[in-house]
Design a protein around this nucleic acid. Structure first.
Lengths: 231, 231, 231, 231
DNA sequence: CATGAATGAGCTTTCATTCAT
DNA sequence: GATGAATGAAAGCTCATTCAT
């Protein structure tokens, strides 16, 4: 009479449990690191504190990440650069007008980056870039360049399809980038100290920015697909 | 027979020199600290380096400032420029179109703040705001709010005079503020490390931003004073 | 109906393999430890590395040896070659001239000890003697003294047979010992890092040493059996 | 009426006292470091311990030496490499026979290096060379090469003046070097564990070695300046 | 028995701050 | 007042050792 699988239930469960634990560690550490880096900055965050928040000891952290810098890079990869392929694909697959695509891009950024702790990393990198040149180079290569490329393609798409007026491709990118970076920085700097009346509502802020950019690109509301033909 | 003073001519001259410079000390320290804090951030700047650059010893620094934090606060307070009344007056006196006024405002800001070490304070405060919340609130009240008010008046002027399309007064301000803060931050963070091809030229950047903003406000180039003459 | 054992064929085979190798474990660990201790010294050798090279886990190492120190002691004890009686017999049986015997002794040492991993133990013990005094005394008694006795007998034979000039029996031994120990140490310390031009060729080195010693003993080349025939 | 110098006795004495203290520090630290490095090896010696033994705090050590490695290098320079010029000059100025020069060289080495804690550094470097390649390279360049050059010149002098038989210049050096290194190593390894009867007396040891080397070089006692003319 | 994830004491180095001079 | 030598609390990282599985 055949004994049903698994052949070794006990050993299997043991290995599974261990594995599950081991696999969970990096994630827990990455989450703790993200929180603390955002809260206190890269330099001011102690490795032991990260470990503590992740519920492990100092040594364990270095079992999974070779150094504090590597941990930081992993945080960025996990939350930003690792997701670019997916984002790029989604942008490529977008079928609506370029105005809608830009709107989609910026609101998606807010939903998935700006409104999450990851926006703190953006602020942090901007603040500490000059102190950690290696990290800055990494961030530039893994986040800024791909991000800029993504924006550039959106703008080119708009121009190619006759939806946007022609803009300098290099500086046009900043027209989109600046409001996003501003929002990330604001949120983690002066935003929190604002009086209730002066609070900046991110959604409204973005809406106005998007409107102005699109208007600036020559897109009139309600006339999304046509471009002004005036002299 | 009385021994003529001073007993030690050398020491005496040193003392004289010291006395002469004594009142200048805090200022020199603040200037040195500003430079270094901007260059490297608060945490990464060593107290000794500040003292050195100010031409005094480490001990002297702590004679004038109880701690590095107190020095930081003093640096920011010292650099809270009180020029807003003057700027406001100049803006009020401006007689050209509102588009020209906005252009004037932003290029003037670049000439007198953005392109000077003053922009370092902006970068510094934005970077360290979360570590010095009271200071951030102070800076917000003394610098940001007045600046925002100035921008708001320019926009209102444009709308009142029928030159700009009507925008949300609160969030329209950020349309102007964001590119400026972005530029100040960029200049002190990723800018310096960029490859020559990726270098951002501030004047060109600002020109494109201004164009887009104005275009977004409904202003067409060459038609500066009129709005929406297109069909 | 009885369920045929084993319940877990895979685990069972693992267990079998383990059992088969179980007795080999300490030996494999000792061999790996010898190699690594010699290469890098006691302090610089990591326990995990030893385990790895022995093909077991870190935990297993501590199952067989209570601590790294105990492992070190075991390594040295394990390698205290008991070949002295055999060597002594061979020396006693030697029938040629004492000069040839000395030459034979030193080249044999090189062939069977100096040029083998065994010399590592000499280097290791010499290096770590001050950290493990009891072990050093043990090594001295078990290896050095018998070795010195062997050399002493060779010298005495030469003197007795009128082949060597008379030398202090106690310190003459070191005339032979020093070049050998030097070679063993050099090989494991500065030798490997020497520029090609500075490389020391052991055979040539030994040849010159032997020549000088013999010459120093009054033996002239080609006149091996006679002493001091010169005016 | 002239006031006699110094113009500022108090300030001068203060400065002097401070200066004396500051100047004494490196020496105290170097002495403590030498002791401890010899006692426990490079890796096993903790920086704090060195500081403690020198009577200062951990931080002070790093005020004078950039790192533990630099401290070690300074120890070597202070005690070995820094003295080579003087030693070389003394050897150059030597006017006696080459046999006496060699004897002089080796006994001087014993007096000024071998019989001092510095011999421990020799042993230490030989033991740990493979662990600290940078230090090993430094030691080779600053100590071994100059030392070997010195010995080579002595041998060449003897051969040129017809006092020594001609020997391979490369391996001849080791004939002199090996007994010295052996003695240094012995003293710090197996020497201390010897029974009183087996104790090696360095002076006697060296005397026998020198005799053998000279005899090996063809020098007969009492005939120091003439070389055998036998076929 | 064997594993390897986890631990935490321990190490070098930095730097704000103090204080004798 | 001014100095700068001295301090010692951290911080990042390593690795022998433990122990749940």
């Amino acid at each position: 009479m055949p004994i049903t699988l698994p052949l070794c239930p006990v050993a299997a469960s043991v290995r599974a449990k261990r594995a599950r634990r081991k696999e969970a560690r990096p994630g827990e550490l990455l989450a703790a690191a993200l929180e603390l880096f955002v809260e206190k900055g890269f330099a001011a965050t102690r490795a032991e504190e990260i470990a503590q928040r992740a519920g492990v000891s100092k040594g364990t952290l270095f079992l999974y990440f070779a150094s504090k810098e590597e941990l930081f890079k992993a945080v960025v990869r996990e939350n930003l650069s690792g997701r670019f392929p997916e984002w790029r694909a989604r942008m490529e697959a977008f079928e609506g007008s370029s105005a809608d695509l830009l709107r989609f891009f910026m609101t998606q950024w807010w939903a998935h980056v700006g409104d999450t702790p990851m926006s703190g990393i953006t602020k942090l990198m901007t603040s500490e870039a000059s102190n950690f040149p290696e990290l800055a180079a990494f961030y530039r290569q893994e986040v800024i360049e791909p991000g800029a490329a993504l924006i550039r393609r959106i703008l080119e798409r708009g121009v190619e399809r006759g939806e946007f007026r022609s803009v300098d491709p290099k500086y046009g990118v900043y027209t989109v980038l600046a409001p996003m970076l501003f929002l990330a920085m604001w949120k983690h700097s002066f935003g929190p100290s604002a009086m209730p009346l002066n609070q900046l509502d991110p959604e409204q802020y973005l809406a106005v920015q998007i409107d102005t950019i699109l208007y600036g690109m020559g897109v009139r509301p309600g006339l999304t697909a046509t471009l002004e033909k005036t002299p």
